[in-house]
């Protein structure tokens, strides 16, 4: 068996003028939960579609479990599970019928299928709803069903493209509980997410911006690599404070977190006291400025912002 579940080399794909993916070199180890994060249009979906053989690369190559995706597409598909971002079940079919449909597509022996199906249904809490039509499911339940369908054939590698988009926190927890259990079943997961708190749950992360892999590492690595430090403060006139802070030298990102303002400042940038002084000088009332614990969200925002400015 291969130790690398996914390996891409110089993977490139353009759509007309738009360069969706520019020379992606990615290695995902077997049994990993690897998160692909980055802004909209960064190339996450394109990567997944290239890996599942739905798109043909312009250049470079991709391997899944050691098999070339272009040359051995059908073999790759047999051991791949894929949950597309805009995936919908077959509307008129019930939960059970949808699962059966996918079991048939992957030719799961009947005996195995019943057991596997029961197992996944109870893990997602959908057992009671097997007779319900897919178009009568809520968003969260629909995504759980989609996840079951993508797992029914026990794939070695699972691609999940923003599986929790529009899903409420309760269903989100259920979905993640299943994802967490997958490495124990020897399933490698490549998951994309727009949410920092979900990115935190991955073993490793790749940050993709404008089709280029900016950085790879554990969530802790990404936080540690941050050159800027976060400061939190309170301001009565949030808008004025935001505008003033954005113009302040040494400030990298400005974000509102809850009712507080959270900024990241470069090493040579101002500290909490200087920030308050500067705001006071601009006639903006602000209080309680203090160094804050660095977070993954800061790091992701900073990377996206830096690249956005370059582009």
């Amino acid at each position: 068996m291969h130790d690398l579940a996914i390996r891409t080399e110089d993977l490139t794909k353009s759509f007309g003028e738009i360069r969706a993916l520019a020379g992606l070199d990615l290695e995902v180890a077997r049994g990993e939960i690897f998160g692909l994060v980055g802004p909209d249009g960064a190339g996450k979906t394109t990567t997944m579609r290239l890996l599942s053989g739905l798109l043909r690369p312009d250049a470079g190559r991709a391997e899944v479990a050691g098999l070339d995706v272009v040359e051995r597409t059908e073999d790759v598909r047999r051991l791949l599970g894929y949950l597309p971002q805009t995936f919908a079940m077959l509307h008129e079919l019930t939960v059970a019928e949808n699962i059966e449909y996918f079991a048939d597509l992957y030719c799961i022996p009947r005996g195995q299928f019943a057991q596997r199906s029961d197992e996944l249904l109870s893990a997602t809490g959908l057992t009671e709803f097997t007779g319900r039509r897919a178009d009568a499911l809520s968003g969260g339940m629909g995504q759980k069903l989609a996840l079951i369908c993508s797992l029914i054939h026990r794939p070695q590698v699972l691609l999940l493209d923003e599986p929790t988009r529009g899903v409420d926190p309760v269903s989100r927890r259920d979905l993640w509980r299943i994802v967490y259990g997958l490495p124990a079943e020897d399933v490698t997961v490549l998951i994309s997410t727009p949410y920092a708190d979900e990115a935190e749950r991955c073993n490793r992360l790749g940050v993709l911006v404008d089709g280029i892999l900016q950085t790879v590492g554990t969530p802790q690595d990404l936080v540690a690599r941050q050159t800027s430090r976060p400061i939190e403060l309170q301001a009565t006139e949030q808008r004025l404070a935001r505008n003033a802070l954005e113009k302040l030298g040494g400030v990298e990102t400005v974000a509102v977190v809850g009712q507080a303002l959270r900024i990241t400042v470069r090493r040579d940038g101002p500290g909490p006291e200087e920030v308050l002084k500067a705001l006071d000088g601009a006639g903006v009332e602000a209080t309680e400025a203090h160094w804050a614990q660095p977070r993954l969200a800061d790091a992701l925002l900073a990377i996206a912002e830096r690249c956005g400015k370059d582009g």
């Binding site: 980055g38 802004p39 909209d40 923003e162 988009r165 529009g166 727009p194 949410y195 920092a196 949030q238 808008r239 935001r242 974000a255 509102v256 969200a297 992701l300 925002l301 996206a304 912002e305 956005g308």
Partner: peptide
């Protein structure tokens, strides 16, 4: 829904304004 964090920040800044 489906909007990345940086754009979400902008969006909510506008709501606040």
């Amino acid at each position: 829904s489906g909007v990345d964090p940086a754009v979400r920040q902008q969006f909510w800044n506008l709501i606040g304004d």
